[in-house]
Design a protein around this nucleic acid. Structure first.
Lengths: 209, 209, 209, 209
DNA sequence: AATGAATGAGTTTTCATTCAT
DNA sequence: TATGAATGAAAACTCATTCAT
């Protein structure tokens, strides 16, 4: 049988593979370093035999890389859906800042995405390769945000004279830094909470019509 | 003899330890995943015996963590010095964007810093612990940027009505995202180069007097 | 799979484990110090892969401790069987003294037992822990000798007015010292051989009816 | 300078060597396995430099073997002196049983002696070699006990018709087994305490005039 | 397709010993 | 003589991968 790519449509993923993905994601969320995840732990937690992992994947790294890619896709698909359900850009930004303040899976996905961007590890190179493929495009943060921003311009809420690329950059950079500041107060020595209104103002001031 | 911490003053680091740090940093720059760095490789490249590594450090992870902490300190000390030698804020921002566009050590240090912020791996936790100590404070990006921004306000180039914390956030987020966009065109699908003027404008427009 | 304890019933020990036990015992008999036995040597001699050892045991010390416990049980089970097949106490004592004079496995087991009693090494503590368990009770020298002595009393060959505990002590102490004297003529400077009749008389004189 | 043998007269041992011997003996008494004693620990506890150990000894094993030999000599010299200060054989036996019941250094020395007798480890072979030399003869248990026993015969307290060798055997075996039974109740499952009068009687009955 | 016992290459770490000072 | 920094050989242990069932 052909091996998995991590880019399959949700419905197309065999249940055992799904169980493996879930096991990997759960361990990452528990703070286990990706490189320290063991095949035996994955298969144990997935409730399958160790050999079975090799029916679906060639190497351990591919298991983890596919799991991460699958996870990122799921997260950003969910994020896109959520954003589109908000009625105006202000609410959308607030929602993003909320997401970034909570501890859960979405924030974790964001951090994972950044990590993938800035790390040269073999594993992250593999994930980048997957995320760079055409199938993944609709779930790239650039496109998720881009869609939202274009709608904001169309609705007349946002300035029309800025390239959409820069608007994406603007939202992404503020959200990312805000998340890092919250996550690492010690290293930033900023009062992240008190800064939220400024961050909100910063985005709206720059992009608002 | 006491073991190393990675926070020693530059002059206080024994030459063999310095050679080890250099070996680690070189490998990281070559794209070797931190977790795949071998003690035997470090000592070979440092030109010392394998046992010697354990005279100065208890474990391999501590070697790598100290090397990274030492590297970050050096980079941000250098960056601070460079920024202070520019005569106005506009030049300082341009310098930052230049730094971020080049391929070399400073950019690498920035990426390493971000990676440390967003990763939960045991190694990065160790680095965070070091970077969070009092001795490191003057080299934290927050403080390096903070100093520059306060001077800009004093010189009347920058708005005085924003909390310096937010100003730091603003510079840091633009610079960081710009760097990520340049490094990963595939994932962002932005024309990073064409965006530089906008990034510059974004920072100056928000913070300028 | 569960790890070995060294107290499994003979039939329950997987063949690879048995091969490891045999390798350990053979090396001990060859005079290799327990602490100098290498995992790689054990597995080589057992004809299995090194990793396999760790399928059945957590650490090297556990391999050796289990092998010794298994060996002691086998030896004392054999000794008990042999003693019971002799028709009277005199023959039983003679058999014990014979055993102690020969160089082979039984004597080696006896010495191993004594060593375990008088040494505080981590390894010997582990063996003591195993030998102190309920499953091992029937093979403890105290019980092996106790059974024989009680039968001697019942048959009217031995005095009935001594506590069986002391009778055990009496046999054990004579046999043990006789063995040490034979093994270390230099340190005792006794003519061990010439002493055998006296040892025999000592035991019989004290315990005989 | 010539290296140490462990058989030097007490007054002839250089103070640094004495400090090393004490460090070794202390560690053994603390339950550290002889083979796990490290040169660096010995010299640290002795308050000397690591290299200094090699001024006096060729190898680590020789350090430990000499320390044990020195210790045994000191213990059995002390024991001989103590025994001779008791006025009759009954008191001497009682003294021996007292010694064996206490937890301290003398008992430890006895156990060490037995361990040396029954173990084939390289280290114990080295100690045996030392203890077998002429200089050590006066301190061998066989001779220490032999002297006492001969005096008992001369005083008419003990039977004159038994070879002194067997009398030594008799005392040694009872004392040794009693000690082992006390130290390892779990493995012997005897009520060692209650047995003391019988042990005393056993020795006196067999050897007494 | 699914399994898990078996494997051994690869890595960290220890520590006796050396030797320049 | 005394030292202790430097060394590297040697050993335990891990875990991805295979393959017979």
């Amino acid at each position: 049988m052909g091996k998995m790519t991590g880019l399959e449509e949700t419905g197309n993923v065999p249940p055992k593979v799904l169980a493996m993905y879930d096991a990997v994601i759960a361990m990452l969320a528990e703070g286990v370093d990706a490189v320290n995840i063991r095949v035996s732990t994955i298969t144990e937690r997935a409730g399958i035999g160790k050999g079975t992992a090799y029916e679906y994947f060639d190497t351990k790294d591919k298991i983890v890389a596919c799991a991460i890619a699958y996870h990122l896709r799921r997260i950003f698909a969910w994020l896109g859906g959520q954003l589109e359900s908000r009625k105006n850009f202000g609410e959308q930004v607030n929602f993003l800042l909320d997401v970034v303040e909570e501890k859960e899976h979405c924030k974790e996905g964001f951090l994972r995405f950044v990590q993938m961007m800035v790390s040269n590890s073999e594993l992250n190179r593999m994930v980048r390769e997957k995320v760079g493929r055409e199938e993944f495009a609709p779930y790239l943060p650039a496109n998720v945000f881009g869609k939202v921003l274009r709608q904001g311009v169309e609705r007349g809420e946002l300035r029309g004279d800025l390239p959409v690329e820069y608007m994406i950059h603007c939202v992404f950079s503020h959200v990312l830094s805000y998340m890092m500041e919250i996550a690492n107060r010690d290293c930033f020595r900023l009062d992240a909470g008190a800064m939220r209104p400024f961050v909100y103002q910063g985005i709206m001031g720059e992009l608002g019509a």
